[in-house]
Write a protein that binds this DNA or RNA. Structure first.
Lengths: 150, 150
DNA sequence: ATTGCTGCAAAACGTTTGCACCTAT
DNA sequence: ATAGGTGCAAACGTTTTGCAGCAAT
């Protein structure tokens, strides 16, 4: 998926609903794709402001909901009671390991997680929709700990 | 573990730190044990108020942190940006399945989850601390959906 | 022309904090 | 006596909302 394809997905999604196609929404999409790593709505708003965008905070919040709905970005909750997003641009499915010492967020993939999620849902009589799996860890060697984020 | 044992665990924990033993803290502990299902700090505060307690909201919030620290209760994040707790009284470790249709929260246990969490942490060079695993589902048969919570 | 969207500021929400008084040690 | 806890209300930070003007259909 490239930016143009992403724009098309958003465009299609908007047309299907009673949504309008506005330049602001594509500005938010572009920023979300360009942003490195995970971001909160406010972080993206500041990022856009710094890049001379005039899109308002309210519009950023609302558009991120739309982008999540059409799966162009993913909503993540890392247990700090804030909505974090990450673009699905050129990404494969993954979960997160979060270091409580240095704040690092490491992505990992384990096929067993998906299987467990589907099995449990089925066994309990539900249709699986999505899941959230976060592992919280400590640095094994604090001396090597880089103390950076994302 | 009974209520008396729980009180002893709290008591020991408080003594070990530079914390004081106050009646308010044991009131919060009792309420947390008595409360059915998962609760937010505010819900517990209201629950206590209704049971003629005069413990303040601030004390409830702070005490829940202490109870979490000494593992008498567990902090859960279900993706709605609110801190939810549940007492560990007579409970074994479990994870949660949350129905987006009816709000039901079903507990399940799968030993593979714990193993995955430990393996991933180890493989990436960390010491595993805790994890959060939530499965979001839809009712298979909406007609049977009871629409109750917890 | 209609209906949805934007931007702004204000409100909402759960949670945290400052502070004066109180209490366990 | 002193360090820590409590209760109250105010502050906080993120998110949502109300509304007047604007723009896509």
């Amino acid at each position: 998926m490239n930016n143009k394809q992403a724009a098309e997905i958003l465009s299609d999604y908007l047309k299907k609903g009673k949504h309008r196609i506005t330049p602001e929404r594509f500005e938010v999409l572009d920023a979300a794709i360009e942003y490195e790593g995970h971001f909160t709505a406010d972080e993206l708003y500041i990022f856009m402001k710094n890049n001379n965008s005039n899109v308002s905070r309210a519009t950023v919040y609302k558009t991120l909901e739309l982008l999540t709905a059409c799966k162009l970005i993913s909503l993540r909750n890392f247990g700090d009671n804030m909505n974090r997003y990450e673009s699905n641009f050129k990404r494969k499915q993954h979960d997160h390991l979060l270091c409580l010492d240095c704040g690092r967020i490491v992505e990992f993939t384990d096929n067993k997680v998906n299987k467990i999620q589907e099995d449990i849902s089925e066994n309990l009589g539900f249709t699986s929709s999505s899941y959230s799996f976060n592992i919280f860890v400590r640095c094994k060697n604090k001396a090597n700990c880089p103390h950076y984020n994302d």
